[in-house]
Design a protein around this nucleic acid. Structure first.
Length: 421
RNA sequence: GGAGAGGUGGCCGAGCGGCCGAAGGCAGGCGCCUGCUAAGCGUCUGAGGGGAAACUCUCCGAGGGUUCGAAUCCCUCCCUCUCCGCCA
């Protein structure tokens, strides 16, 4: 959500953001609507003010004066009866339109509309030289990932993780979780069915309707990330400045319809409807330097987890057109996936500025001022996607899989996974 | 699912037709006092919107209604708590 005053006073900033994020919203219509709304508001408030005054006078009025006051109030009420619903409709429409406006990308965010326009800023870790014919994760894990039964029972893009596959999933989750606990994050297990308010407040609705599962009978949405319940956790609350930052780690299953991705990444673990994720969420004060600091800390935490998993990766600055509606600044971390012969996104780190805090009304008190918080989030680990590079990178010539040192204690202390035929 | 109680400012809590945007307390800001700390004294402090300003409107869980006038009365819904039942 953007500040309506910013929109009124600096429409060109908003216009530019709309263009850069390749959004379609009619800003001129919004400005016009806002103007009309305020005009009507002035008239309504004048009428209400008159009515309130007359009502106060009535206590000390004589009997005949009362009759005339009442008839005058009747006239005012008649006007309000007509004008108020009209005003409410305008306000509702305006609020809806405002929900469609994108967050403003930081000026350093590159323009562009596709992955190629994003800027790689670093590569970490070596891509191993395989002196044998490599297998992709499906081949390596053919007995651990059961897509056939997944489809039979739950439809396409669904998988059973079985045996080692399920164990690996738990292991990477544990590793990431412990890493965040060491960094002082508070772990949350969150509701996975939420009200519209939480989806809207975090910016996944009203745009993004197609991407969410909705339980019609109970009017609940399945979350696509624990960011939704975690950020909404503090909706309508006011922190004191010294309580901030809040560092939260959310664990949940995530549900995504992948509506816009028909035919894309149809094979394997890369893009499925349901997965597990630990997410980092930070609430901090409304200060760009401060949120930048936390942004890089979140980014660093994720990188450290990949380093613990001994996976080669690169970090990119995501271009404006590829960013989500709320985001102000965003990095993706991509792991090298030998089976794809390319890097694939495994984590995504975003600064939301006060976009979500405005929608959810999350503030803090600083002296006598109330200010909107900044919110940030980044993946800590998302599985099973992360298993793709994990087993592809660590596959050995003899068919076994090397287990990174940090992961072993979560895998019953084994050093590798033996080939099984 | 059944029965009862309740939802008021950052928090607790009084108010039950106009004098109430709301007593009192806590917390916080400022000032005084104190060798330091604690205590004490005084004082200020709800939020959101419109307007250049004066000023004004809205908000006491949400939405309707009654009334010249609603935190207060009526209806509907939501939520929380207690007891009972059922059950992972």
């Amino acid at each position: 959500m953007l500040d309506i005053k910013l929109i009124r006073e600096n429409p060109e900033i908003v216009r530019n953001a709309i263009k850069r994020k390749h959004t379609n919203v009619d800003l001129e219509m919004i400005l016009e609507l806002d103007k009309n709304k305020r005009e009507l508001q002035t008239r309504i408030e004048k009428a209400r003010s008159d009515r309130n005054k007359l009502s106060k006078e009535i206590t000390k009025a004589s009997v005949e004066e009362k009759a005339s006051i009442i008839s005058e109030v009747e006239k005012i009420k008649e006007f309000l009866k007509e004008a108020e619903p009209r005003f409410n409709d305008m306000e509702k429409e305006l609020n809806y339109q405002l929900l469609l406006l994108p967050g403003i990308p930081h000026e350093t965010v590159p323009d562009g509309n596709s992955d190629e326009d994003s800027i790689e800023i670093k590569r970490v870790g070596d891509i191993p030289e395989f002196d044998f014919e490599i297998k992709d994760h499906l081949e390596i894990g053919k007995s651990w990932f059961d897509f056939y039964r997944g489809a039979k029972v739950a439809g396409s893009r669904t998988v059973y993780l079985k045996g080692i596959g399920a164990l690996l999933e738990q292991a990477v989750l544990q590793l990431a979780l412990n890493h965040l606990l060491e960094k002082g994050f508070t772990l949350f297990s969150v509701p996975q069915m939420v009200k519209e308010m939480a989806m809207e407040g975090t910016g996944f609705l009203p745009r993004g309707q197609e991407e969410c599962y909705f339980l019609e009978r109970d009017e609940r949405y399945l979350i696509g990330t624990s960011e939704v319940p975690l950020v909404s956790y503090h909706a309508d609350e006011i922190f004191s400045a010294k309580e901030l930052p809040k560092k939260y780690a959310g664990f949940s299953t995530c549900y995504r319809r992948e509506a816009g991705a028909a035919g894309k990444d149809t094979k394997g673990l890369y893009r499925i409807h349901q997965f597990q994720k630990i997410e980092q969420v930070v609430f901090c004060i409304n200060d760009l330097e401060e949120s930048k600091k936390w942004h890089y800390e979140l980014l660093n935490n994720a990188e450290e987890i990949l380093q613990l998993l001994e996976l080669p990766y690169r970090v990119v600055i995501v271009c404006a057109g590829e960013m989500g509606l709320p985001q102000h600044f965003k990095h993706d971390i991509e792991c090298y996936m030998p089976g794809r012969k390319n890097y694939g996104e495994t984590m995504s780190c975003s600064t939301m500025h006060d976009f979500q805090a405005r929608r959810l009304n999350i503030k803090y008190r600083e002296g006598t001022d109330l200010k909107y918080c900044h919110t940030l989030n980044n993946t800590a680990i998302a599985t099973p996607r992360i298993l793709i590079p994990l087993i592809e990178i660590h596959q050995q010539k003899d068919g076994s899989i090397y287990l990174p040192r940090a992961l072993r204690k979560y895998m019953n202390n084994r050093e590798k996974i033996e080939r099984e035929d």
